[in-house]
Design a protein around this nucleic acid. Structure first.
Ligand SMILES: [Mn+2]
Ligand SMILES: [Mn+2]
Ligand SMILES: [Zn+2]
Ligand SMILES: [Zn+2]
Lengths: 145, 145
DNA sequence: AAACCAATGCAATAAAGTTGCACCTAACTA
DNA sequence: TAGTTAGGTGCAACTTTATTGCATTGGTTT
């Protein structure tokens, strides 16, 4: 149980919290495990509806904390609500760590396209990049038939 | 006046409305000219604050109509509000027509990087792309000094 | 045990987006 | 031309999402 392998990481959840210098708390454990089970980018509303015994603001602040500690990254897919997904091992949330996402306009799922890294682009003079939000949208494989 | 060259187009605004099969109305004219003057992606709130004699919902519906008629495209830059920018001549709002954007986290301006087209990526089997929202963020040339 | 501090739940609020409806206006019809 | 119609606009209400204040809880430190 304690040594179970979690998500994208070769570490247990407990180890990850230690590495990211974050106290392990009931809400954090539940939210982390929930994200880990789904392996997709999920909205606060979606998480809240499943973890209904937790308060929305607690989940919200937990996600914010996860973002601050680079345990999850956010995706703005145009659906109207922010999606959250677990980072991969070694992710520092720099553009070079990030990847494209795919938003299905039918089932509204948002996927991390882990094997599609953000390309390094040459920006106009004076522009300095620190973040990236790459979203393709259309039909996912489940909805395309 | 009537023959003035507007924005990205080699056509007058009146011509564009005809091409896009859209009636020319007072609000549409003002919103179009406003977007055209700024050559940037702007939020509803921002437009509203300048065109203060127009109603928010009228501007909102006008922008929606412009999007439907492919006169403007939307950008979700993570700022919390949708940005709108004029399309270029010949734009059909397909991914191949679209380009990267840059959101400055300091001045909150969103730029169309017209010379950075969306690359064609190979998606997993079964995924069909229809839209793209590419946003880099950081410091713009004005704020970087 | 007392003090402390972060986490949590609850409730209120802010911010953005959206809609119903009445009125207006300009184009069309008779 | 007068009447009719359809779409555009303004106003106000409302929905959804995001965010914050504050009191309470619960574990850790002194
Ligand atoms: Mn991702
Ligand atoms: Mn653009
Ligand atoms: Zn789908
Ligand atoms: Zn700037």
């Amino acid at each position: 149980m304690e040594k179970q392998i979690y998500g994208f990481y070769n570490y247990s959840m407990t180890d990850i919290f230690k590495i990211k210098e974050l106290a392990s708390t009931p809400v954090r454990v539940l939210v982390y495990e929930y994200l880990n089970e789904h392996q997709k980018a999920l909205s606060l509303k979606y998480i809240e509806s499943d973890l209904y015994d937790l308060d929305r603001s607690s989940i919200f602040r937990t996600l914010k904390t996860f973002v601050d500690h680079k345990i999850v990254h956010t995706i703005h897919d145009g659906s109207g609500s922010v999606k959250y997904a677990l980072c991969q091992e070694g992710c520092n949330c720099d553009p070079s760590d990030l990847h494209f996402h795919f938003y299905c306009t039918t089932c509204e799922a948002t996927y991390c396209l882990l094997d599609l890294p953000v390309p390094s682009v040459s920006l106009p003079t004076g522009f300095v990049i620190s973040q990236a939000n790459m979203v393709l949208s259309g039909l996912c494989n489940n909805c395309n038939s």
